[in-house]
Design a protein around this nucleic acid. Structure first.
Lengths: 221, 221
DNA sequence: TGGTCATTCTGATGTTCGTTGGAATGACAT
DNA sequence: ATGTCATTCCAACGAACATCAGAATGACCA
């Protein structure tokens, strides 16, 4: 014990996890999986990958211990191995954003100008408690079903334009989505503001809240 | 905004950090740097690397935003960019150990059989408060100077055999080192036990305690 | 039992990465 | 200025990786 070969072997084990985090496509898949289980095909189309490439990436993630599989009928569903993987992913993004100026630029380019002030989770909970806001979850239906903020109204972004009547004009609307790096809430707030609603965006989202146990389930997982 | 190219660019930014974590040598260097600044030469010999290879790895880490440089005389000292990098490293190890059986085996092979029960930080603090233990920091001198547990006695492992007289036979001795994956405290406890002392090992170490603000400094950083 | 379909495996190709010795840089000291 | 010394840059090699189309697998279902 204590010898070089054993030390290299141990660190190579840690590096196997690091390597799995070293591809933008794998990270994108990880981020999707943080919202709930997905089939290979669903992941491939969401991440803009060929089926076999996607499968290969999933093998890498599986060997790294980051994801698990479950068979349902003739489909195989991948999901995160545990919440600590989501935490690791969150951690990675935090470090990248904090220490890499390029990352901040890329974030702005993807999410659009940060015109509306984002509402912190602390402030959001306070205002829900005070009852002066309507909270809207703008993610796709299966993700909402997989866990959402108690009391949130569910309107997927694609349906938002057609369901504006469901929202009050006189109260402030706070939209949230997958997390800090998801476009959905940004898009929703832009749309709502344009139509004359008072809307703002939650800074955090499902990923962050799952890690702090703030999400409620709908029965079916 | 919201288009594929921008999304790819953002995730490529995150992946740049992941890639930096995808080499066992870089992780080893990161672990050393978590204990304090080091010159290129020091890192190269500690990690068993050629100078130019080591320098290349350091460039990778620097571009990923994980480390920073400081010039002192004709030497360049590298150090972690911030504590959140150490946290990320800690997180990575936790995930690897939890989800990869191979990693657990490699850990056992490197650290040796886990014969002595490790003392948790909570229990350690309690027993320090009760005053019934002697705490020994067995890391090299510069690392001790860079921060250590208040009240700890400092005896580097290499000097331990020759300085046994400084330790009491009638009280329990608890040794700690860099962290959960460091051999030093394991070695120290084996030596002490063999010589008839009552000794055990702290489960955590400097890395973990730095993250929770438990370390005291010596004046000179 | 044989067909179907989602997924994985197999090569093959272009790209990136790790490692190396030796040359270039650039701060310091005389 | 000139020499010294730590570090970085350079060029080149082999190894590992991402991607893709197509073949193989193997669980489901009629």
């Amino acid at each position: 014990m204590g010898d070089r070969a054993a030390k290299d072997a141990l660190y190579a084990e840690f590096a196997a996890v690091g390597k799995a985090l070293g591809s933008h496509k794998r990270l994108e898949m990880l981020d999707l999986l943080a919202q709930g289980p997905r089939s290979v095909e669903a992941l491939a189309s969401a991440a803009d990958l060929g089926i076999s490439t996607c499968s290969a990436h999933l093998q890498t993630l599986r060997e790294a211990g980051l994801v698990e599989t479950r068979r349902d009928g003739r489909r195989i569903y991948y999901s995160l191995a545990a919440d600590d993987v989501a935490k690791l992913w969150d951690n990675l993004r935090r470090v990248a954003l904090r220490h890499r100026p390029h990352t901040q630029l890329a974030r702005a380019a993807y999410l659009g100008p940060d015109d509306t002030e984002a509402v912190t989770t602390e402030a959001l909970l306070q205002r829900i408690h005070d009852g002066d806001v309507v909270v809207v979850d703008v993610r796709p239906t299966p993700e909402f079903a997989g866990g959402h903020l108690p009391g949130a109204v569910h309107i997927p972004v694609e349906e938002l334009a057609g369901r504006l009547a469901e929202l009050p004009v006189d109260r402030e609307i706070i939209a949230y989505c997958r997390g800090q790096y998801c476009v959905l809430a940004h898009d929703a707030v832009r749309l709502l503001t344009m139509r004359g609603y008072r809307a703002s965006r939650a800074r955090d989202g499902a990923l962050e809240w799952r890690l702090s146990g703030l999400l409620a389930h709908d029965g079916a997982a």
